[in-house]
Structure formats: structure tokens, C-alpha cells
């Protein structure tokens, strides 16, 4: 099994898990879904520079080539942003749950478990 197949299928599984969770009705699932999606995207961006084995990150006269450093810096930026946004969304959904009394994304109360 090639490295490309492994990475591509990994991205696929993460993305599908993320999309499934994103479409769930409760905020916690949605937050997890977005986290999965951001992992998938990080891997995707990373692999966009081409998958190279045993190459230096920058130029090395002795090596036959080098890996593309730009996707790595893009991933770094994306990680920072998605980490901060996940934290913000967690706090926001917790606050919404406490103030609105429901953790449904559309803000409607759960009909089965209506508060007494």
C-alpha cells in the first residue's frame, strides 16, 4: 500500500467523520466535527506540497531535492487559527447552553426532554 493511498484515505475518513458530526443537531458534536474537519484540512494542505521521504526541509546541496516548506507554514497558520476558533466555539456553545437552556444548534428545546 503506497504512502499516497494511506494519506488520502486518512484524509477521507477524517473528512467524512467531520461532515457527519457537523450535521448533528447538538453543539458538542458540531464542535467535534469542525475539529475533525480541521485535522483533515491540515493533512490535506500538508500533502499538497507532495509527499517526499527522507528529504531535507530546505535546500541541501548533498540531497537530491527538498520538501516544499510552504505547505508546512500554511499548516502551522491553519493549526493556530483552527485551535483558537475551536476554543472560542466551545466557550460560546457552553455559554449558549447555560443561557438558553438547550444545546441544540437551532436553539430549539428538545421536545422529548422538556425542562419541568
Amino acid at each position: 500500500m503506497s504512502l499516497e493511498f494511506l494519506v488520502a484515505s486518512g484524509i477521507g475518513v477524517l473528512t467524512s467523520a467531520g461532515i457527519y458530526l457537523l450535521l448533528r443537531p447538538r453543539t458538542f458534536d458540531v464542535v467535534l466535527g469542525l475539529a475533525f474537519l480541521s485535522y483533515a484540512i491540515n493533512l490535506f494542505l500538508f500533502s499538497m506540497g507532495g509527499l517526499e521521504l527522507g528529504r531535507p526541509p530546505f535546500f541541501d546541496a548533498g540531497a537530491p531535492g527538498y520538501t516544499d516548506p510552504v505547505p508546512q507554514s500554511l499548516v502551522l497558520t491553519a493549526i493556530v487559527i483552527s485551535f483558537a476558533m475551536t476554543a472560542l466555539l466551545l466557550v460560546l456553545s457552553l455559554r449558549t447552553y447555560l443561557e438558553a437552556g438547550t444545546d441544540h444548534v437551532d436553539g430549539e428545546a428538545d421536545p422529548k426532554k422538556r425542562a419541568p
Partner: peptide, 20 residues
């Protein structure tokens, strides 16, 4: 807050697509 959660989630999904 309820409207805010939706707004943030929609835009985070949008940012993900932007990166793709």
C-alpha cells in the same frame, strides 16, 4: 448567543472550504 453559534459554525465550515 443562539444566532451567534450558527454564525460561527457556518463561517468555520466556510474557512475549512477556503483552505481546501
Amino acid at each position: 448567543l443562539k444566532a451567534g453559534v450558527q454564525y460561527v459554525v457556518v463561517n468555520l465550515a466556510g474557512s475549512t472550504l477556503f483552505l481546501v
